[in-house]
C-alpha cells in the first residue's frame, strides 16, 4: 500500500509577503505565428447580382444534339446561345400562330399513369382484388436493359438554361405544355427542332448586329 506521510514537527512561521508586495509574474505566452501578423489576401467574393438581374430559365430534357446545334449556330454568328434559342422559339411560336406548324400529342407506349388530367376524378385509379385470387407474377426484366432505359429518361438528361427569354414566349410555352399535357422540355425541344430545320433549309434567317461599343467618342 501507499506510504503514510510521516508527521513533521511544527516549524516556526515564515513571514509571507503580502499580495500587494508581490511583483507581477509574467504569464508565458505562445509566440504569435508569423502568418497571423501579416494581412493576407482574401478570396474574392463572387458577386451574384448579375445572375439575379439576368435570371435564366432552365429546361430539362432537351436532347444534347439539339443543344449542340443551337450552340453551333450561336458560335457561327458570334452571338450568345440564349439569343439564338430566343430567336428560334419566337420563330416556331409565330409559325404555330400562323398555322404553319401544328402540334399533336399521343399516348406514349410504355409510360403509364394512374390519374390522367383529362379524366380527373372520373377514372378508377384503384380497385380491390377479389379475395382468394393471386396477383399475376411480375415479369423479370433484364437489369442492363432497365439501366439503359433509366439513363435515357428525359429527366436524367442535363438541364439547359437560356437567359432573357421574353415573358410572352414563356407564357406560350406554358400554354402548350398544359394543352398537350407534356413536359416543358418536350415542347421546347420540338420548337427548337422545327426552327433548326427551318434555319438549315434557309427559310429562317438570323440577322446578327454589332454590339454597341462601350466607349464614347466625341463627335466634332
Amino acid at each position: 500500500m501507499w506510504d503514510q506521510p510521516t508527521p513533521q514537527p511544527p516549524s516556526a512561521p515564515v513571514s509571507q509577503p503580502t499580495p500587494e508586495a508581490l511583483p507581477p509574474v509574467p504569464v508565458p505566452t505562445a509566440p504569435i505565428p508569423i502568418i497571423d501578423q501579416i494581412r493576407v489576401t482574401e478570396k474574392k467574393k463572387r458577386s451574384r447580382s448579375w445572375d439575379e438581374q439576368n435570371r435564366a430559365t432552365a429546361f430539362r430534357g432537351i436532347p444534347p444534339e439539339v443543344q449542340a446545334q443551337v450552340k453551333a449556330v450561336a458560335k457561327t454568328l458570334d452571338v450568345t446561345v440564349s439569343e439564338v434559342a430566343r430567336a428560334f422559339l419566337e420563330f416556331s411560336l409565330e409559325s404555330l400562330r400562323r398555322g404553319d406548324l401544328r402540334l399533336s400529342s399521343s399516348f406514349s407506349q410504355g409510360k403509364m399513369m394512374l390519374y390522367s388530367n383529362a379524366a380527373w376524378g372520373q377514372s378508377a385509379a384503384w380497385s380491390e382484388r377479389p379475395a382468394g385470387t393471386l396477383p399475376p407474377a411480375p415479369k423479370k426484366k433484364n437489369a442492363k436493359a432497365v439501366q439503359a432505359l433509366e439513363l435515357e429518361k428525359p429527366w436524367r438528361r442535363p438541364m439547359v438554361s437560356y437567359r432573357h427569354l421574353p415573358a410572352g414566349v414563356l407564357e406560350n410555352i406554358e400554354e402548350l405544355r398544359e394543352q398537350h399535357s407534356v413536359p416543358v422540355g418536350e415542347v421546347v425541344s420540338l420548337l427548337l427542332r422545327y426552327a433548326l430545320a427551318a434555319y438549315e433549309d434557309g427559310r429562317l434567317v438570323l440577322h446578327p448586329q454589332p454590339r454597341r461599343a462601350a466607349h464614347l467618342d466625341i463627335v466634332s
Partner: peptide
C-alpha cells in the same frame, strides 16, 4: 522569407501599407 515577412509587417504597421500577402 522570414526577413521578407518582417519587412511586410514593418510596412503594414508603420508605413501604412494596405496590401496583403497572397502567398
Amino acid at each position: 522569407v522570414r526577413k521578407m515577412t518582417e519587412m511586410l509587417i514593418m510596412l503594414q504597421q508603420s508605413k501604412g501599407w494596405h496590401g496583403s500577402l497572397l502567398g
